[in-house]
Amino acid sequence: MGSVQKRTYAKGKPPRYIARVRVGGKEISKSFAKLGDARDWIKLREGLSPTGARMDNRMLGVVLKAHIEQSATESTRGVRTHLLANLGDLEYRKLGDVTSDDVREWRTLLAEGRPWADGKPLSNSSIRTLTGTLSAVFNDGVAQGQLPRNPVTQVRRKSPSNQAVEPHQVLRLEQVRALIDSAEEPYATMIELGATSGLRAGEMAGLRVRSVDFDRRVVDVTEQADGHHKAYGWRPLKSEKSRRTIPLPNSTLDALRAHLERHDYEPHTPLFRAAQGGQWSSAHVAKVWRGVAADAGVRNHSWHSLRHFYASALIASGASVTVVQNRLGHASAAVTLAVYSHLWPGDSEKTRAVFDNLL
Protein backbone atom coordinates (compact mmCIF):
# COMPACT_ATOMS: atom_id res chain seq x y z
CA MET A 1 0.00 0.00 0.00
CA GLY A 2 1.19 3.52 -0.73
CA SER A 3 1.42 6.34 1.77
CA VAL A 4 1.19 10.13 1.76
CA GLN A 5 3.36 12.34 3.95
CA LYS A 6 2.45 15.99 4.57
CA ARG A 7 5.50 18.20 4.43
CA THR A 8 5.25 21.69 5.87
CA TYR A 9 7.56 24.61 5.17
CA ALA A 10 8.31 28.09 6.52
CA LYS A 11 5.47 30.47 7.24
CA GLY A 12 3.74 31.65 4.10
CA LYS A 13 4.67 28.62 1.95
CA PRO A 14 1.89 26.04 1.35
CA PRO A 15 2.45 22.39 2.36
CA ARG A 16 3.35 19.62 -0.09
CA TYR A 17 2.11 16.06 -0.08
CA ILE A 18 4.76 13.39 -0.78
CA ALA A 19 3.22 10.23 -2.21
CA ARG A 20 5.21 7.00 -1.96
CA VAL A 21 4.38 3.60 -3.40
CA ARG A 22 6.21 0.35 -4.13
CA VAL A 23 5.67 -1.02 -7.65
CA GLY A 24 7.51 -3.97 -9.13
CA GLY A 25 9.82 -4.19 -6.09
CA LYS A 26 10.94 -0.55 -6.35
CA GLU A 27 9.76 2.43 -4.28
CA ILE A 28 8.89 5.57 -6.20
CA SER A 29 7.67 8.94 -4.93
CA LYS A 30 6.26 12.22 -6.18
CA SER A 31 5.36 15.56 -4.64
CA PHE A 32 1.91 17.18 -4.99
CA ALA A 33 0.25 20.40 -3.90
CA LYS A 34 -3.09 18.69 -3.21
CA LEU A 35 -3.75 15.63 -1.05
CA GLY A 36 -6.33 14.26 -3.51
CA ASP A 37 -3.85 14.38 -6.39
CA ALA A 38 -1.31 12.46 -4.29
CA ARG A 39 -3.84 9.75 -3.46
CA ASP A 40 -4.96 9.44 -7.09
CA TRP A 41 -1.33 9.09 -8.20
CA ILE A 42 -0.78 6.25 -5.70
CA LYS A 43 -3.88 4.48 -7.02
CA LEU A 44 -2.63 4.85 -10.59
CA ARG A 45 0.86 3.59 -9.72
CA GLU A 46 -0.57 0.58 -7.87
CA GLY A 47 -2.68 -0.29 -10.83
CA LEU A 48 -5.80 1.45 -9.55
CA SER A 49 -7.79 3.93 -11.58
CA PRO A 50 -9.22 6.90 -9.65
CA THR A 51 -12.45 4.88 -9.44
CA GLY A 52 -10.62 2.11 -7.60
CA ALA A 53 -10.70 -0.68 -10.26
CA ARG A 54 -7.56 -2.84 -10.27
CA MET A 55 -5.70 -2.94 -13.56
CA ASP A 56 -2.19 -4.37 -13.08
CA ASN A 57 -2.71 -7.39 -10.82
CA ARG A 58 -3.79 -9.66 -13.65
CA MET A 59 -1.59 -12.57 -14.67
CA LEU A 60 0.61 -12.05 -17.71
CA GLY A 61 -1.09 -14.91 -19.54
CA VAL A 62 -4.51 -13.27 -19.09
CA VAL A 63 -3.18 -9.94 -20.35
CA LEU A 64 -1.60 -11.60 -23.39
CA LYS A 65 -4.85 -13.41 -24.23
CA ALA A 66 -6.56 -10.04 -24.34
CA HIS A 67 -3.86 -8.79 -26.74
CA ILE A 68 -4.41 -11.87 -28.93
CA GLU A 69 -8.12 -11.14 -29.16
CA GLN A 70 -7.36 -7.56 -30.18
CA SER A 71 -4.83 -8.52 -32.90
CA ALA A 72 -5.30 -6.49 -36.07
CA THR A 73 -3.77 -9.11 -38.41
CA GLU A 74 -3.46 -12.88 -38.57
CA SER A 75 0.33 -12.51 -38.53
CA THR A 76 0.23 -10.57 -35.25
CA ARG A 77 -2.24 -13.03 -33.79
CA GLY A 78 0.05 -15.92 -34.74
CA VAL A 79 3.12 -14.37 -33.09
CA ARG A 80 1.22 -13.54 -29.91
CA THR A 81 -0.27 -17.03 -29.76
CA HIS A 82 3.23 -18.49 -30.14
CA LEU A 83 4.39 -16.32 -27.26
CA LEU A 84 1.51 -17.51 -25.06
CA ALA A 85 2.48 -21.12 -25.76
CA ASN A 86 6.06 -20.37 -24.70
CA LEU A 87 5.66 -18.17 -21.62
CA GLY A 88 6.39 -21.03 -19.25
CA ASP A 89 6.02 -19.99 -15.61
CA LEU A 90 5.72 -16.33 -16.65
CA GLU A 91 2.17 -17.07 -17.77
CA TYR A 92 1.08 -17.22 -14.13
CA ARG A 93 3.06 -14.22 -12.85
CA LYS A 94 1.27 -10.94 -12.18
CA LEU A 95 2.15 -8.26 -14.69
CA GLY A 96 3.56 -5.97 -12.00
CA ASP A 97 5.70 -8.71 -10.43
CA VAL A 98 7.76 -9.67 -13.49
CA THR A 99 11.39 -8.51 -13.21
CA SER A 100 14.31 -8.30 -15.64
CA ASP A 101 15.84 -11.36 -13.97
CA ASP A 102 12.64 -13.29 -14.66
CA VAL A 103 12.87 -12.35 -18.34
CA ARG A 104 16.55 -13.37 -18.53
CA GLU A 105 15.77 -16.77 -17.00
CA TRP A 106 12.89 -17.23 -19.43
CA ARG A 107 15.13 -16.43 -22.43
CA THR A 108 17.72 -18.90 -21.17
CA LEU A 109 15.09 -21.65 -21.09
CA LEU A 110 14.05 -20.80 -24.65
CA ALA A 111 17.65 -21.08 -25.85
CA GLU A 112 18.78 -24.11 -23.86
CA GLY A 113 15.61 -26.17 -23.92
CA ARG A 114 11.98 -25.57 -22.98
CA PRO A 115 10.69 -27.87 -20.21
CA TRP A 116 7.14 -27.44 -21.53
CA ALA A 117 8.21 -28.60 -25.03
CA ASP A 118 10.16 -31.78 -24.27
CA GLY A 119 13.39 -29.83 -23.84
CA LYS A 120 13.41 -28.44 -27.39
CA PRO A 121 15.16 -25.05 -27.80
CA LEU A 122 14.10 -22.19 -30.03
CA SER A 123 16.26 -20.50 -32.65
CA ASN A 124 17.85 -17.11 -31.96
CA SER A 125 15.48 -15.44 -34.43
CA SER A 126 12.42 -16.95 -32.72
CA ILE A 127 13.68 -15.85 -29.31
CA ARG A 128 14.19 -12.30 -30.60
CA THR A 129 10.67 -12.27 -32.03
CA LEU A 130 9.08 -13.54 -28.82
CA THR A 131 11.12 -11.11 -26.71
CA GLY A 132 10.00 -8.19 -28.86
CA THR A 133 6.37 -9.28 -28.62
CA LEU A 134 6.64 -9.61 -24.84
CA SER A 135 8.23 -6.17 -24.65
CA ALA A 136 5.28 -4.70 -26.56
CA VAL A 137 2.89 -6.08 -23.94
CA PHE A 138 4.82 -4.36 -21.15
CA ASN A 139 5.16 -1.14 -23.16
CA ASP A 140 1.38 -1.06 -23.36
CA GLY A 141 1.21 -1.42 -19.57
CA VAL A 142 3.67 1.44 -19.10
CA ALA A 143 1.74 3.65 -21.52
CA GLN A 144 -1.47 3.04 -19.56
CA GLY A 145 0.20 3.90 -16.26
CA GLN A 146 -0.01 0.33 -14.95
CA LEU A 147 3.75 -0.14 -14.66
CA PRO A 148 6.68 2.16 -13.82
CA ARG A 149 8.95 0.53 -16.41
CA ASN A 150 9.31 -2.29 -18.93
CA PRO A 151 11.34 -5.19 -17.43
CA VAL A 152 12.23 -6.45 -20.92
CA THR A 153 14.05 -3.26 -21.97
CA GLN A 154 17.25 -3.86 -19.99
CA VAL A 155 17.43 -7.48 -21.13
CA ARG A 156 17.09 -6.55 -24.80
CA ARG A 157 19.67 -3.77 -24.50
CA LYS A 158 22.30 -6.25 -23.38
CA SER A 159 21.55 -8.73 -26.16
CA PRO A 160 23.24 -8.45 -29.56
CA SER A 161 20.78 -7.56 -32.30
CA ASN A 162 22.52 -9.73 -34.88
CA GLN A 163 23.82 -12.98 -33.48
CA ALA A 164 26.27 -15.16 -35.37
CA VAL A 165 24.80 -18.25 -36.99
CA GLU A 166 26.16 -21.46 -35.54
CA PRO A 167 27.06 -24.33 -37.92
CA HIS A 168 24.21 -26.51 -36.62
CA GLN A 169 21.74 -23.78 -37.64
CA VAL A 170 22.63 -24.21 -41.33
CA LEU A 171 20.56 -26.80 -43.17
CA ARG A 172 22.38 -29.53 -45.06
CA LEU A 173 21.58 -30.14 -48.72
CA GLU A 174 19.97 -33.50 -47.99
CA GLN A 175 17.72 -31.83 -45.41
CA VAL A 176 16.54 -29.27 -47.95
CA ARG A 177 15.77 -32.06 -50.41
CA ALA A 178 13.89 -33.98 -47.72
CA LEU A 179 11.81 -30.89 -46.94
CA ILE A 180 10.90 -30.40 -50.61
CA ASP A 181 9.98 -34.09 -50.98
CA SER A 182 7.81 -34.01 -47.84
CA ALA A 183 5.87 -30.88 -48.77
CA GLU A 184 2.79 -30.58 -50.93
CA GLU A 185 2.38 -27.92 -53.57
CA PRO A 186 2.71 -25.00 -53.55
CA TYR A 187 4.80 -25.25 -50.37
CA ALA A 188 7.37 -27.53 -52.01
CA THR A 189 8.03 -24.88 -54.66
CA MET A 190 8.14 -22.21 -51.96
CA ILE A 191 10.83 -24.17 -50.08
CA GLU A 192 12.91 -24.56 -53.24
CA LEU A 193 12.61 -20.86 -53.99
CA GLY A 194 13.48 -20.01 -50.38
CA ALA A 195 16.61 -22.17 -50.52
CA THR A 196 17.80 -20.57 -53.76
CA SER A 197 16.91 -16.95 -52.98
CA GLY A 198 17.13 -16.51 -49.19
CA LEU A 199 13.75 -14.75 -49.03
CA ARG A 200 12.24 -13.97 -45.65
CA ALA A 201 8.83 -15.55 -44.97
CA GLY A 202 7.00 -12.24 -45.38
CA GLU A 203 8.84 -11.54 -48.64
CA MET A 204 7.92 -14.98 -49.99
CA ALA A 205 4.27 -14.43 -49.06
CA GLY A 206 4.37 -11.00 -50.69
CA LEU A 207 5.59 -12.12 -54.12
CA ARG A 208 3.26 -11.42 -57.02
CA VAL A 209 3.12 -13.38 -60.26
CA ARG A 210 4.89 -10.51 -62.01
CA SER A 211 7.73 -10.61 -59.45
CA VAL A 212 9.30 -13.49 -61.37
CA ASP A 213 10.89 -12.48 -64.66
CA PHE A 214 11.55 -15.63 -66.67
CA ASP A 215 13.34 -13.74 -69.45
CA ARG A 216 15.83 -12.14 -67.07
CA ARG A 217 15.82 -15.28 -64.86
CA VAL A 218 15.38 -13.28 -61.66
CA VAL A 219 12.89 -12.56 -58.89
CA ASP A 220 12.30 -8.93 -57.90
CA VAL A 221 11.74 -8.36 -54.18
CA THR A 222 9.88 -5.06 -53.74
CA GLU A 223 7.27 -5.65 -50.99
CA GLN A 224 6.01 -8.13 -48.43
CA ALA A 225 2.65 -9.52 -47.36
CA ASP A 226 0.81 -7.39 -44.80
CA GLY A 227 -0.19 -10.40 -42.70
CA HIS A 228 -3.89 -10.65 -43.58
CA HIS A 229 -4.20 -14.35 -44.33
CA LYS A 230 -7.55 -14.27 -46.16
CA ALA A 231 -7.29 -10.97 -48.02
CA TYR A 232 -4.66 -9.77 -50.47
CA GLY A 233 -2.49 -7.01 -49.09
CA TRP A 234 1.06 -5.71 -49.16
CA ARG A 235 3.26 -3.41 -47.11
CA PRO A 236 6.80 -1.98 -47.49
CA LEU A 237 9.85 -4.14 -46.91
CA LYS A 238 11.91 -4.16 -43.72
CA SER A 239 14.22 -1.46 -45.14
CA GLU A 240 15.14 0.17 -48.43
CA LYS A 241 18.14 -2.20 -48.66
CA SER A 242 15.69 -5.10 -48.65
CA ARG A 243 14.61 -4.14 -52.18
CA ARG A 244 16.68 -6.35 -54.44
CA THR A 245 16.80 -8.50 -57.55
CA ILE A 246 17.94 -12.09 -57.09
CA PRO A 247 19.15 -14.35 -59.93
CA LEU A 248 17.50 -17.77 -59.93
CA PRO A 249 18.86 -21.14 -61.12
CA ASN A 250 17.13 -22.95 -63.97
CA SER A 251 15.79 -25.68 -61.67
CA THR A 252 13.89 -23.14 -59.55
CA LEU A 253 12.62 -21.32 -62.64
CA ASP A 254 11.34 -24.64 -64.00
CA ALA A 255 9.51 -25.31 -60.72
CA LEU A 256 7.95 -21.84 -60.78
CA ARG A 257 6.94 -22.22 -64.42
CA ALA A 258 5.25 -25.54 -63.63
CA HIS A 259 3.49 -23.94 -60.66
CA LEU A 260 2.05 -21.15 -62.80
CA GLU A 261 0.99 -23.57 -65.51
CA ARG A 262 -1.24 -25.27 -62.93
CA HIS A 263 -2.98 -21.99 -62.09
CA ASP A 264 -4.53 -19.10 -63.99
CA TYR A 265 -3.30 -16.20 -61.81
CA GLU A 266 -3.36 -12.54 -62.80
CA PRO A 267 0.07 -10.82 -62.88
CA HIS A 268 -0.75 -8.44 -60.00
CA THR A 269 -2.03 -11.17 -57.65
CA PRO A 270 -0.04 -13.32 -55.16
CA LEU A 271 2.33 -15.85 -56.70
CA PHE A 272 1.42 -18.42 -54.03
CA ARG A 273 -2.02 -19.06 -52.53
CA ALA A 274 -3.03 -20.86 -49.34
CA ALA A 275 -5.46 -23.79 -49.30
CA GLN A 276 -8.57 -21.57 -49.26
CA GLY A 277 -7.24 -19.27 -51.95
CA GLY A 278 -6.04 -16.54 -49.60
CA GLN A 279 -2.63 -14.94 -49.44
CA TRP A 280 0.08 -16.55 -47.35
CA SER A 281 1.32 -14.78 -44.21
CA SER A 282 4.55 -15.16 -42.23
CA ALA A 283 2.66 -16.94 -39.45
CA HIS A 284 1.07 -19.38 -41.89
CA VAL A 285 4.41 -20.09 -43.56
CA ALA A 286 5.87 -20.89 -40.13
CA LYS A 287 2.91 -23.08 -39.16
CA VAL A 288 3.09 -25.24 -42.29
CA TRP A 289 6.88 -25.47 -41.90
CA ARG A 290 6.50 -27.25 -38.56
CA GLY A 291 4.40 -30.03 -40.08
CA VAL A 292 6.60 -30.44 -43.15
CA ALA A 293 9.78 -30.44 -41.07
CA ALA A 294 8.37 -33.12 -38.76
CA ASP A 295 7.51 -35.31 -41.76
CA ALA A 296 11.00 -34.76 -43.21
CA GLY A 297 12.74 -35.54 -39.92
CA VAL A 298 14.28 -32.05 -39.80
CA ARG A 299 14.42 -30.75 -36.22
CA ASN A 300 15.33 -27.43 -34.63
CA HIS A 301 15.04 -25.46 -37.85
CA SER A 302 12.66 -22.79 -39.10
CA TRP A 303 11.90 -21.08 -42.40
CA HIS A 304 14.76 -18.69 -41.62
CA SER A 305 17.12 -21.67 -41.83
CA LEU A 306 16.62 -21.62 -45.61
CA ARG A 307 18.05 -18.10 -45.54
CA HIS A 308 21.12 -19.36 -43.67
CA PHE A 309 21.43 -22.21 -46.19
CA TYR A 310 21.37 -19.72 -49.07
CA ALA A 311 23.97 -17.47 -47.43
CA SER A 312 26.30 -20.36 -46.62
CA ALA A 313 26.07 -21.62 -50.21
CA LEU A 314 27.00 -18.18 -51.55
CA ILE A 315 29.96 -17.95 -49.17
CA ALA A 316 31.14 -21.46 -50.06
CA SER A 317 31.07 -20.48 -53.74
CA GLY A 318 33.47 -17.58 -53.07
CA ALA A 319 30.95 -14.72 -52.96
CA SER A 320 32.17 -11.48 -51.38
CA VAL A 321 30.65 -9.83 -48.33
CA THR A 322 29.03 -7.20 -50.55
CA VAL A 323 27.40 -9.81 -52.78
CA VAL A 324 25.99 -11.72 -49.81
CA GLN A 325 24.75 -8.47 -48.25
CA ASN A 326 22.96 -7.45 -51.44
CA ARG A 327 21.43 -10.87 -52.05
CA LEU A 328 20.08 -11.08 -48.49
CA GLY A 329 18.95 -7.46 -48.36
CA HIS A 330 20.91 -6.63 -45.22
CA ALA A 331 21.01 -2.98 -44.16
CA SER A 332 24.83 -2.97 -44.14
CA ALA A 333 27.86 -5.19 -44.63
CA ALA A 334 28.39 -5.01 -40.87
CA VAL A 335 25.15 -6.92 -40.33
CA THR A 336 26.26 -9.60 -42.80
CA LEU A 337 29.63 -9.96 -41.09
CA ALA A 338 28.06 -10.07 -37.64
CA VAL A 339 25.92 -13.04 -38.65
CA TYR A 340 28.08 -14.95 -41.14
CA SER A 341 31.72 -13.84 -40.80
CA HIS A 342 32.85 -17.18 -39.34
CA LEU A 343 31.58 -19.00 -42.46
CA TRP A 344 34.14 -17.33 -44.73
CA PRO A 345 37.38 -19.31 -45.06
CA GLY A 346 39.90 -17.98 -42.56
CA ASP A 347 43.59 -18.46 -41.89
CA SER A 348 43.08 -22.10 -40.93
CA GLU A 349 41.61 -22.92 -44.33
CA LYS A 350 44.35 -20.97 -46.09
CA THR A 351 46.98 -22.93 -44.16
CA ARG A 352 45.39 -26.25 -45.13
CA ALA A 353 45.16 -25.15 -48.75
CA VAL A 354 48.88 -24.32 -48.86
CA PHE A 355 49.96 -27.75 -47.68
CA ASP A 356 47.30 -29.59 -49.65
CA ASN A 357 48.91 -28.12 -52.76
CA LEU A 358 52.44 -28.90 -51.61
CA LEU A 359 52.08 -32.54 -50.59
Rank of each mutant, 00 (worst) to 15 (best):
F32C: 04
A72P: 00
A53F: 05
A33C: 00
S31D: 04
L35W: 10
K11W: 13
K43R: 12
M55Y: 09
V62W: 06
G47F: 00
G12W: 11
L44G: 01
A72S: 10
V21Q: 02
Y9F: 15
R45A: 11
K13Y: 01
G25T: 06
A19N: 06
T51D: 11
K26D: 14
A72E: 08
T73W: 02
K26M: 01
R58C: 00
K6E: 14
K30M: 11
G36E: 05
Q70F: 01
I68L: 12
S3K: 15
P50H: 08
R7G: 01
L44S: 08
G36Q: 09
A66D: 15
G25M: 07
V23S: 04
R54A: 14
R16C: 09
I18G: 02
F32W: 06
E46C: 10
S29W: 11
M55L: 15
Q5Y: 05
I28R: 13
R58T: 13
D40S: 12
V62F: 00
P50N: 05
I42P: 00
G52K: 03
S31C: 03
W41H: 08
L44H: 11
G25A: 04
V23D: 01
L64M: 04
K65H: 14
G25E: 09
R39Q: 11
Y17M: 03
V62D: 15
R45W: 01
G61Q: 02
L44Q: 14
S31L: 02
S31T: 14
R58P: 04
N57R: 15
V62I: 06
G61Y: 07
L60D: 04
G25H: 07
R39A: 04
V21E: 02
S31P: 00
A66Q: 14
A19C: 07
G25D: 10
V4E: 06
P15V: 01
G61L: 11
T8R: 13
R54M: 12
G24D: 08
K43Q: 12
Q70M: 09
A19Y: 04
M59V: 12
L60N: 05
M59P: 07
R7F: 00
V63F: 05
L48E: 04
G47H: 02
E46S: 11
S49Y: 08
G52Y: 10
P14N: 06
V23I: 14
R45G: 03
R20G: 12
Q5D: 14
A53S: 13
H67T: 06
S29V: 05
G24Y: 02
K6V: 12
A33Y: 00
D40Q: 13
S3P: 09
N57M: 02
G25Q: 11
D56C: 01
S29E: 13
G52A: 11
E27A: 04
L35I: 05
S49W: 10
A38E: 03
K30N: 08
A66S: 14
H67F: 15
Y17N: 09
Q5S: 09
K13L: 12
A66H: 10
E69V: 05
E46P: 05
V4N: 07
V62M: 02
K13M: 07
W41T: 02
N57V: 06
M59R: 15
S3L: 10
D37L: 06
S3V: 07
A38W: 03
T51Q: 14
R54D: 14
A53K: 14
K11D: 13
G24N: 13
V4L: 09
R20V: 07
